[in-house]
Design a protein around this nucleic acid. Structure first.
Lengths: 213, 213
DNA sequence: AGCGAAAACCGAGTACGCTAGGTTTTCGGA
DNA sequence: TCCGAAAACCTAGCGTACTCGGTTTTCGCT
């Protein structure tokens, strides 16, 4: 998965010092970004935190955006791991409830949603590195959710006439869109409740019994 | 509404040259941003376009972000004007159809969605100028939509047990979230169709006849 | 008409993101 | 063990966003 952590035949690969350094940098950056915001953190400060020069830091991460991306990549893998814990034979109601639970999880990690919104904007530029990562992340997120919905449909816990990929896309769109409204409201909006209301309404058209959550 | 366009007693206000200049600047910036992207446009280029210095430009717009904001403000007023054309006695189905029509409108304006996503991210910072504007815009957008839904409910074209503000928030969240997925997909995703599918599903729980669009 | 205050604009300087090239350090293999 | 190639790191310099004075232009008011 990661070609930098172990030497490939022919190529050299990273040294032990480099790997350790990169880890320190990501940790320091994550701390600074959450504390004082992405825009307001200077690369020099992060470099100072780990005891190297700005130029030295740029050797490991080609740009400030690449550094932000590395921070986000950590979060994404953690998120994917959490979702994979939802069993494949989960019924329709379980899946919708997981959407709400995921939102509650996000709310417990301070600064995460802000960083997510920021990276999203960066990914809008097709030339950026974030673009590729986000494109892949969204694809797999939608696919994974659609797959679980389709499995539930096979088991009869989701109505047979459901457009699973479309519902999956909608769920993720609602999650992202409401997160945006949440940050802009300054945390005033009851994000978890808003997601719950959507999932509840969705349940009434999706589940065979026609009831909510 | 705009204290700069007309002289208030005591204060001086802008000069005619200044107002004309600002307009030229916003036009030039909008062109550049759409053409070569926000990040890649240098303020100096925009200043050159209108025949002044970078310092001169910064006199009118305190920062590059403020300039972006001015561009977006134009779009927002145009958007609000479009929505106000939807009559107050529109029935539930009309309102949902308007959501789809609005999306199709956005798709016809190149670069607009990218700029929107970008400004959203900026607005995540409570200290930024975009924050205030977006907070206000979202509030009025949600309120306006909720109001129209409530009016339709009074006329019996939307089910009586509908949580209008929640539905309004959801519609806007879906729109924003899908726009994000659209830019990240590089325009591959059929945005209008995705919005239509959501509106259709919503119609089946919201409208008294229980049919789609 | 023309005074004067505020707007409009310029120019120099700063901080930061980033590039280019050179120097030092690491560490696999002879 | 120690050679040397690649990684790790630094220094110098450029472009850009932004600040801070100072200078010029506008235009309401007498």
């Amino acid at each position: 998965m990661n070609p930098m952590t172990s030497s490939t035949q022919g190529r050299r690969g990273s040294y032990a010092v480099g790997i350790a350094r990169r880890q320190k940098i990501v940790e320091a950056a994550a701390r600074r970004f959450a504390l004082e915001g992405y825009q307001r953190t200077a690369l020099t400060r992060v470099a100072e935190d780990v005891g190297i020069t700005e130029g030295g830091l740029l050797h490991h991460f080609r740009s400030k955006k690449h550094l932000l991306l590395a921070v986000m990549e950590h979060r994404f893998t953690a998120e994917a791991a959490w979702w994979s814990r939802l069993p494949d034979d989960a019924d329709g109601r379980d899946i919708l409830r997981a959407m709400v639970a995921a939102t509650e999880r996000h709310l417990r990690e301070p600064g995460l949603i802000e960083l997510f919104v920021l990276t999203s904007a960066e990914a809008a530029d097709p030339a950026s590195a974030a673009h590729a990562l986000f494109a892949e992340r969204y694809q797999s997120a939608v696919d994974e959710l659609a797959r679980k919905l389709a499995a539930a449909m096979d088991l009869g816990t989701v109505r047979a006439d459901t457009d699973c990929p479309a519902v999956a896309r909608e769920c993720i769109a609602v999650s992202d869109g409401l997160q945006l409204q949440w940050v802009i409201s300054g945390g005033t909006l009851d994000l978890a409740e808003a997601v719950r209301l959507h999932a509840d309404r969705l349940a009434r058209t999706l589940l065979p019994d026609g009831n909510g959550l």
